[in-house]
Design a protein around this nucleic acid. Sequence first.
DNA 1: CTGTTAGCGCTTTCAC
DNA 2: GTGAAAGCGCTAACAG
Lengths: 338, 338
Amino acid sequence: MKTLKEIAQAAGVSMATVSNVINGNYSRVSSDTVERIQAIIQATGYVPNQAARSLAQRESYVIAIIVQASEGENIFRNPYTAEYVGALTVELYRKGYYPLIRFTDDFQEVESDLRGWNVAGAIFNGSFSKQLQRIHSLPSIPTVFTDCYFRIPGINHVGVDDDAGGQMAGEYLGQMGHRQVAFIANYLEDSEVDQHRLQGFKAGLKKYGIQLLEENIFPTPLTAVDEVLVGKTLSKANAPSAFFCTSDRVAVQLMQTLHKMHIKIPEQVSVMGFDNLPIAEITYPPLTTLAQDISQKAHLVVDMLVRHIRQKELPPERTLLGVWMVERESVKQLLSEK
Amino acid sequence: MKTLKEIAQAAGVSMATVSNVINGNYSRVSSDTVERIQAIIQATGYVPNQAARSLAQRESYVIAIIVQASEGENIFRNPYTAEYVGALTVELYRKGYYPLIRFTDDFQEVESDLRGWNVAGAIFNGSFSKQLQRIHSLPSIPTVFTDCYFRIPGINHVGVDDDAGGQMAGEYLGQMGHRQVAFIANYLEDSEVDQHRLQGFKAGLKKYGIQLLEENIFPTPLTAVDEVLVGKTLSKANAPSAFFCTSDRVAVQLMQTLHKMHIKIPEQVSVMGFDNLPIAEITYPPLTTLAQDISQKAHLVVDMLVRHIRQKELPPERTLLGVWMVERESVKQLLSEK
DNA sequence: CTGTTAGCGCTTTCAC
DNA sequence: GTGAAAGCGCTAACAG
């Protein structure tokens, strides 16, 4: 018993009626028939063919999840991305959609996925700034962009309040008595996320009259985290006593380097991260960081997307998720100074 | 320009011809026509409709990746799973397939995915022991099972040589001079992976005349890793000087507990893991562990699956991937004893 | 080499 | 309430 037609025959009704039952249009079918058909479906374990449905409806229940990654890169080695996509997956199934996950950086591939699968919607993660114009001008499929900043209005976006997070970090370090601090970005030049975290950080420090020196801003982990550079930075006259890193991953790298150099955390140097990934709990010492609620974010994103799928022509939305401090043990309270 | 039909009209040929060009059946089309049609496809950015193709062929280019997880669980928080599924995703796209990722524990859902999408094949990860019978009796879609042990013959399987890994761990600890050791499983009762690692471990220890005491075998992290139990275990007369954990994640938990108790690793207690996940590098101290090549595994799995898709009726295959020691700093060399 | 034709399994008017 | 029929976009014989 494989097709709708066979179900219809078994029930002695037309295909249209079975179709109505399957799709929950009970108002068009007598409750007797509904029950009878459902019983048969149950008994036979009939499963509708998604391809046929998608063809007939000119739309599938597929949602593309496009994650920016370079050719052949396994982006799920990044724990943040993995957890986020996992959370999206869970949410999508909950709502009856199927995720189509694609790692890419290439607009061609994105376009053929979107069109080839007649996707109902798409979720983008990462800074697709360059391709954005073209993505945006695609057939009118609803999209939500996440973790990126755009100058283009008219897109749906869910992000994290990076400014606020940076600011909290700045204030916290100030309050803990640090007066010389440093910032390590992931990719300052390209990532607006990094730029906002830095901006917020500066603002937070300002409240304590602290200035972040240009020389203490490291645009990428590569330019900061190796032993010689860390050594140089720490041996200066006004060496920073604390580092704020744009992500937990970067913080972890820094901590490794410090361990190798036998520099004690937080006794000699304090470290802060951003994201509150599972790894933040297992570092030594446990990492003080800014938390974002990834499940909530996924939930919001999927909700927003589904809303726009159901009612096209809804005006674009933007949401910024809050962040909060998770105080662990990687930042030392300094004696207050003059 | 959206459909094959339109391309055919534009080129002044029949749909069949365009179809042949799209599917690379160049032997049935003159090279002139091939070029002309390809040019048009290029120019118009035509993308074939996957649903239609799948309907007509009675098979899609979708491969289901079924990951065992409880209802609503985001299994990508497990870094091993995330990395593995990511690697599968990369490999599948490389071969022209689309991954359909599903977290579940429920056979019903598996079945409706497999049938509803007319998947070309499926990859299972986790111990689907209970459902296996039913999965196996499904419509004849090729499957590969990974990271599990089954008594049922006739299935394709790619696993890791857990016995060998366990044995290497046992021999290594023996060679490093440890004489009292302990083993922490993830879920000994249910996981045959754990059981094999334990078995190998015992065998490896035996070469050094070491016996693993029953009381030093912890069936789950819950029964081992909390402070009181660790305290009790370590204060015994013949306290273990080293712990072999069935996974890096468990090892990390143990290390955290030890840190909390201010027990020095490896000076006071040595720790070994299994998997060589990225986290193994960032623990303090870096974790000595057994490595498996996840990309290679994914590659093998996809290769095997595709082989069975192309030639049904191929006899079932089983492959065991090798593992190797990655020596870092979590195991101490003890003075050799009597 | 190329075209014609008959579906794949489902949804969707539109009649009844 | 229910059914008949016309596709959705593509592939797969089979003719020519």
